[in-house]
Simulated assay, not measured.
Amino acid sequence: MEINDQAREELLTEISGISDENLNKKPSSEEWSIKEIVEHLYLLESNVAMMIKQNAEKGENATVSHKPIEATVNRDVKVNAPATALPSDKFASINELEEKLSTSHQQLEEVEKGVDVQLLKQKAFPHPAFGLMSLDQWIPFVGYHEKRHILQIQEVKQKLGL
């Protein structure tokens, strides 16, 4: 969870001090607001925690190769978010977002601490870009994914003049 904790600290620093109005402002109709990016992050983290827990208990054993999850940070490669991690267009405050980020992070930590490491290495779940990926790689993937979106938040802040 080291990369995840580091990314979360960076994320909270990046969004700190932004007004609720600016958090919810889109740079254009085709782009996500900072709020939507953050919502996507906590939805994905919660979904991954739930998926790992379910597959660690009931998933079949699978032998998969190590995936280059560090490449997730590369924003030149576009990957569409799964429907379960798409943000809503509802207004949200910084306090709401921080609370949901804390909850989702806690969920992933609990799964990581509560499931045997060997079990995580023996089970797998498909990723849209990397294919079948071991459950133990899904945990740090969340951190790299968050770092990717921190870069997106920086781009949105620049476009909004923040």
Rank of each mutant, 00 (worst) to 15 (best):
I94H: 12
V111Y: 02
G161H: 07
P87F: 01
I18A: 11
Q6E: 15
L101C: 10
K26W: 00
E45D: 10
K147V: 03
E60I: 06
Q107M: 14
E110S: 13
S46K: 14
V48W: 00
L135D: 07
E36G: 14
D76F: 09
S19I: 08
E9L: 07
T63V: 12
N74V: 06
I52F: 00
K53T: 02
S19K: 05
E155H: 12
V77H: 09
D89E: 15
A83I: 11
V38P: 04
K147M: 15
T72Y: 11
S46I: 03
I150T: 10
L101E: 07
L101F: 04
R75F: 05
F141T: 03
A7P: 05
E112A: 14
L12S: 05
E10L: 11
K35N: 13
I18K: 09
E146G: 01
K58P: 00
F130C: 01
Y42Q: 00
L160T: 01
K35V: 01
T103E: 14
I153P: 10
V79F: 11
I150D: 06
L108M: 08
F130Q: 04
F91P: 10
E110N: 13
E9H: 12
L41Q: 09
V117W: 03
W32F: 13
S93Q: 13
S88G: 14
K25N: 03
L119F: 00
E155Q: 15
E31C: 01
V79I: 15
S46H: 07
A92W: 02
G161F: 10
S102R: 04
K159Q: 15
K121W: 12
N24S: 06
E98S: 14
L132I: 00
I69A: 04
P140W: 00
K147L: 15
T72M: 14
H66G: 08
L12M: 13
E2R: 08
D136N: 11
I37S: 05
P27A: 09
K100S: 02
E60K: 15
N22I: 05
Y42M: 00
P126E: 13
A49K: 00
E36W: 09
S134K: 12
A124G: 07
Q154C: 03
N74P: 05
S29K: 14
L108A: 04
Q106D: 08
T13S: 12
A7H: 08
N55W: 00
S88C: 03
E155W: 06
D5W: 00
G161V: 13
A81Y: 07
K35H: 06
R8C: 01
L11E: 03
S65M: 15
I3N: 09
M1A: 14
K159P: 05
I15H: 05
L162W: 09
L120M: 07
P126V: 10
K113A: 03
E70N: 03
H40E: 05
N22L: 14
K147G: 04
G59M: 02
F130H: 02
S46N: 12
V77I: 13
Q152T: 01
W138F: 07
L135C: 13
V38C: 08
K53I: 01
E70Y: 08
P87M: 04
S29G: 03
Q106A: 07
K53F: 08
V73H: 08
Q6Y: 11
V156F: 11
K147H: 14
I153C: 05
K159R: 09
W32A: 04
A124S: 12
F130T: 01
K157I: 07
V64M: 07
